[in-house]
Design a protein around this nucleic acid. Structure first.
Length: 603
RNA sequence: GGAGCCGUAGUGUAGUGGUCUAACAUGUCGGCCUGUCACGCCGAAGAUCGCGGGUUCAACUCCCGUCGGCUCCGCCA
């Protein structure tokens, strides 16, 4: 059908559709938006008009003449302007499901500002459609109210952060997007330099080194809401480009930062969600978190703690347990309340969940009225069984689950099992916000691939002063002045007090296996800067996408990013990445070794 | 790099070796309709079942491969 596109000339939008109330009755208004739905009754046409403020019903009467004629040709998602008068709806036609349901706009004039193809999915909340389609037509997906709410929440969150930090004397400073590839850490995205053949910039994994140099530069209090890039595999909560709130402060100690961040979080959650966070935020040491919850980002919305039974079972006749302990491992368990009646199938599923993290098996013991029902009960004496049940705090009707393994495997497997049980048993309230600090992370861990120690946080993290003596003797036992903020089992952010003393930094490099020459080569500019009067300093960085995901109660950060990538790192809307013209490569002095025959990209 | 799940009209699903000439809902298009709001009623169009190969008399269905998507492990200082 031939559609006539009209101009907007002479019309001035007076209201948002969703803003109109009974108080506007009698008022002459001009609305502009998208046709959400049209109901054509032959002699009377209703149009639900939508803009980002909401919906309102527009009524077109044949008496309106040309407006009625045009309304007949209008289709979903057409962009129209309507001028008319707000009126009360007739008796009995009020729609309580609609915010503007008590009124309607009687169209006097209607202009079709643009037509639209029929969208491939409904422009409304709660749609059940393949995410591929949503990402391909992201502009339509973002038209949906729930997505608009998330985008607004994200904006409100960064606004609240800026406002808080501004009041505390922080300056927002931009750092380069084209920078130096840094060793250590994630894989870099590289950008070839045209002017320097054979050389490359890297996109920043974080502004870490720049923000520390800003402390040397005397900025004292810095922040930045900044895009960061990591060329690693994706997850529901990991994208190759993401946004972080990056903060650094001088002349402070760990407590100063933690306190400031707690106040920041309280302020942001109050301003965006109207929620009050209980302060101070509770703290766990890394050691405690791993032992009790099997994770360095424990979900504290529910208890269900892991219990160590190594000492109880070390002398038992059950070889799997006793030999695990004898071999330096541990036996730990969980008491699943009221799960004694779990089926074979449910137990298999739990075993699978534990196996993902490397547990070789999952021992179970159902506490029934007739005693312990379990394939392993026969290996224990009555006394051992009693001691075991007592240690686990097991009651009749409970199911005890055990993993015997290296400490790291047992912790990880039971930690994941704990989350699985928490979900299955509905042990927590979805609305709850359980913040926690995790502190005293280890400074170093051993990398078998590289056959050396690597920094758990980064090479500039200050060791805890009481552990300084261990640096030489037992480096793996040294704890760092590093901290993570965790919310509902998700790592929101992390930071540390940095090393500002040359002697300690040299020790650290020594432990990481860098010769002075190597250190200079990798971080020379930073070390040089550090020689010109570096204040004690420290900071933290938060994943904005994850924070918004939790605030909006979504399961993936893709829903909180306007234009996210798929799991294979592509953009379904733009079809990026793509091949480029050979001349472009030539200019950059590059030659692709890829074997795919992409001859210049898709048309 | 590895494991698992998914792929059928525009969309969401059904169909598990033979009336499948692929069904249902919704959407779309046309007609009717002056108080609907997931409007209603009547009618129509719309799918080489992701792609390629194999098994079979016969494949949407079984097998292999491949592509795409999702979840997870590794990886992510």
């Amino acid at each position: 059908m031939e559609r006539v596109i009209e101009t907007i000339a002479g019309l001035h939008r007076s209201h948002g559709c969703g803003e109109l109330t009974a108080g506007d009755t009698g008022r002459e208004v001009t609305l502009m938006g998208w046709v959400h739905r049209r109901r054509d009754h032959g002699g009377l046409i209703f149009i639900d008009l939508r803009d980002r403020s909401g919906l309102v019903q527009v009524v077109c009467d044949p008496e309106a003449g040309p407006a009625f004629k045009k309304a007949e040709g209008v289709r979903n998602e057409y962009v129209i302007a309507v001028a008319g008068r707000v009126r009360q709806r007739p008796e009995g036609t009020i729609n309580p499901k609609l915010a503007t349901g008590a009124i309607e706009v009687a169209a006097r004039e209607l202009r079709v500002l643009n037509g639209a193809k029929t969208p491939p999915f409904y422009i409304e909340d709660g749609i059940d459609v393949d995410e591929v389609l949503r990402l391909r037509y992201r502009y339509l997906d973002l038209r949906r109210p729930e997505m608009q709410r998330i985008m607004r929440l994200r904006y409100q969150t960064t606004r609240a952060m800026r406002s808080f930090l501004d009041k505390r004397g922080f300056w927002e400073i931009e750092t380069p997007m084209l920078t130096r590839s840094t060793p250590e850490g994630a894989r870099d995205f590289l950008v070839p330099s045209r002017l320097r053949p054979g050389e490359f910039f890297a996109l920043p994994q974080s502004p870490q080194l720049f923000k520390q140099i800003l402390m040397v530069a005397g900025i004292e209090r810095y922040f930045q809401i900044v895009r960061c890039f990591r060329d690693e595999d994706l997850r529901a909560d990991r994208q190759p480009e993401f946004t972080q709130l990056d903060i650094e402060m001088s002349f402070i100690q760990r407590e100063d930062i933690l306190k400031m961040v707690e106040e920041l979080m309280a302020s942001v959650f109050r301003e965006t969600l109207g929620v009050d966070i209980d302060l101070p935020i509770p703290r766990l040491t890394y050691r405690e978190a791993m032992a009790r919850f099997g994770s360095d980002k424990p979900d504290l919305r529910f208890d269900l703690e892991i219990v160590d039974v190594s000492d109880v079972v070390k002398g038992s006749g059950f070889k799997v347990f006793s030999s695990a302990v004898a071999g330096g491992g541990v036996v730990r368990g969980l008491c699943a309340p009221g799960c004694a009646n779990f089926s074979r199938r449910e137990l298999d599923e739990l075993t699978q969940a534990a196996a993902v993290f490397g547990a070789k098996g999952l021992a179970w013991m159902a506490l029934t009225g007739e005693g312990a029902r379990s394939p392993i009960a026969k290996f224990f004496t009555d006394e051992e069984l009693q001691a075991l049940v007592a240690r686990m705090g097991g009651k009749e009707g409970d199911l005890l689950l055990f993993v015997a393994d290296k400490e790291t495997v047992a912790a990880a497997a039971l930690g994941s099992l704990r989350l699985e049980l928490g979900r299955r048993l509905g042990l927590y309230d979805e609305e709850q916000l359980a913040f926690t600090w995790v502190t005293e992370f280890p400074l170093l861990e051993y990398s078998p691939e590289e056959k050396r120690y690597v920094a758990v946080h980064h090479p500039f993290t200050m060791p805890m002063e009481e552990d300084w003596p261990l640096l030489a003797s037992e480096p793996l036992k040294v704890r760092a002045l590093a901290y993570d903020l965790v919310l509902n089992g998700v790592e929101l952010g992390g930071g540390s007090i940095r090393i500002h003393r040359r002697d300690i930094q040299e020790k650290m490099f020594g432990l990481l296996g860098f010769s002075p020459e190597e250190a200079r080569e990798k971080f020379g500019f930073l070390l040089e800067a550090f020689e010109y009067g570096t204040p004690p300093h420290g900071g933290i960085a938060f994943g904005l996408d994850r924070m918004v995901m939790l605030m909006a109660r979504r399961d993936t950060i893709r829903d909180c990013i306007a234009f996210p990538k798929t799991q294979s790192g592509t953009c379904l809307m733009t079809a990026a990445p793509s091949t480029v013209a050979p001349e472009q490569l030539l200019e950059l002095h590059l030659k692709s070794t890829a074997r795919t025959a992409g001859s210049g990209g898709k048309e």
